[in-house]
Write a protein that binds this DNA or RNA. Structure first.
Lengths: 243, 243
DNA sequence: ACCTGAACACCGTTCAAGT
DNA sequence: ACCTGAACACCGTTCAAGT
């Protein structure tokens, strides 16, 4: 009780911004963002809540910093590969990071203060596209499409907060029982097939869509101007709206 | 003060689940989800907080119901159109709904209790794809890709909470000033171009990506088996799937 | 310089009590 | 049946005070 002579060998003693961020992340990883509370965080660090404010200006700043640490986990496009390979690797790396840190999915691209790792990341990806011959506008569109797909996939397939009630396949089966199959025949049909094949092939749904997106970008890049399938009248109307 | 004889002409007097949900939504629409508090909601309804619990079992139930009302705003695929047209219209309708209700973006596909409008919606979209000749698996993949794109676009381009500090173009310009252009040259390049063209053409970034996705789905549907660009070894493994 | 104690203004939710 | 009053157990954050 009186003697704390362990010194700097154990990283337990003194608080630091880094230590605050790391335990905050691991807490959010396993309990979701709701489980992250300044008070419980302080308690886990063996400190009084007010002490956190020496290392973090407020909870918003804490979360901004956590998000930037997640960005730092994503691999940047490495040197030699062609753009498609580089983008594929990056997309997978983003999805992996978002799977480890589900709480971050909704925050990565919607915070007001992008951190340094965030900026570095986006700059590097854009740079890869530019040096592969993409125009500025085309690089922007390609990046937008790719990121929309990756984050959207994460959001719709990975975002569910940690589930206390057992494995997801079982949950799907239970849910299936609830649905009256004559009211929602197509839903039941799809879920039955998914449950049947054990969710394994389902696992590469991400790669499947990713290839479609990459091929689409490659094709669009080779065309001078993309023809939008929807618009017979891109000019003429003053305020035309696709109703 | 003493006489409340207006009766049922004004919808002000009596509380109802519908009235609770509607004011909750309009509150979230203009202040974000953080501005939605059981207590302030009650106050706006001229009622004590505890009164809400007669019409809503708790805040989670409230939010589930709000999300389902957003689903109800999305148009279902109408009768005659081809699948691509139907999917295009739906995607635009989803994006519009998510633009009106930015707070819902992260919640539409990640709540544990999908409501009736949610189920109806997904069933109708799947039904459209099935009746256009998509196999069950292909319909699932197509839907997954489409929804990932739409929700991801919403998340990365629309999700920012209501911004007190003026118009976004000005904010982009201010941010540009901050970035040292030799540290993030590609980012600066892209933002400069976007700011220059007034964000108008930028507005159809959504349609641009959507067409690429739709074309990719059409092409994939016509192919017997998609060749994944990434995998030199799709066969040869012992535990191939039991299809 | 870093942490503590104590307080402030808020939350969501419950429960007995009123009408 | 529907709403109120009052309370409980929690929040994020501040600020004077200790070391």
């Amino acid at each position: 009780m009186a003697a704390d002579s362990l010194g700097e060998a154990t990283p337990r003693r003194r608080l630091s911004r880094r230590r605050v961020l790391e335990t905050a992340i691991s807490r959010a990883d396993q309990g979701g963002l709701d489980a992250l509370t300044m008070r419980t965080l302080a308690e886990e660090l063996g400190v009084v809540p007010a002490a956190l404010y020496r290392h973090v200006t407020n909870k918003d700043d804490l979360i901004d910093a956590m998000v930037d640490l997640v960005f730092a986990e994503i691999r940047l496009p490495s040197g030699g590969a062609d753009w498609a390979t580089a983008m594929r690797r990056r997309a997978i790396s983003v999805l992996e990071a978002l799977t480890r840190h589900r709480w971050a999915i909704g925050l990565m691209e919607s915070r007001r203060n992008p951190g340094p790792a965030n900026l570095r990341h986006h700059d590097a990806v854009l740079g890869k596209l530019r040096s592969a011959g993409f125009s500025v506008a085309m690089a922007g569109r390609a990046y937008s499409l790719l990121d929309s797909y990756v984050y959207g996939f994460a959001l719709t397939k990975v975002a569910l907060p940690p589930d206390p009630s057992g494995d997801p396949t079982e949950r799907a089966r239970a849910m299936l029982e609830q649905l009256s199959s004559n009211e929602f025949p197509n839903l039941v049909e799809l879920m039955t097939e998914h449950v049947a094949q054990q969710g394994d092939d389902y696992g590469d749904e991400f790669g499947y869509g990713l290839e479609i997106v990459l091929e689409g970008i490659e094709r669009a890049r080779r065309q001078p101007r993309p023809q939008l399938g929807s618009s017979p009248d891109t000019t003429s109307q003053p305020d035309a709206r696709p109703t």
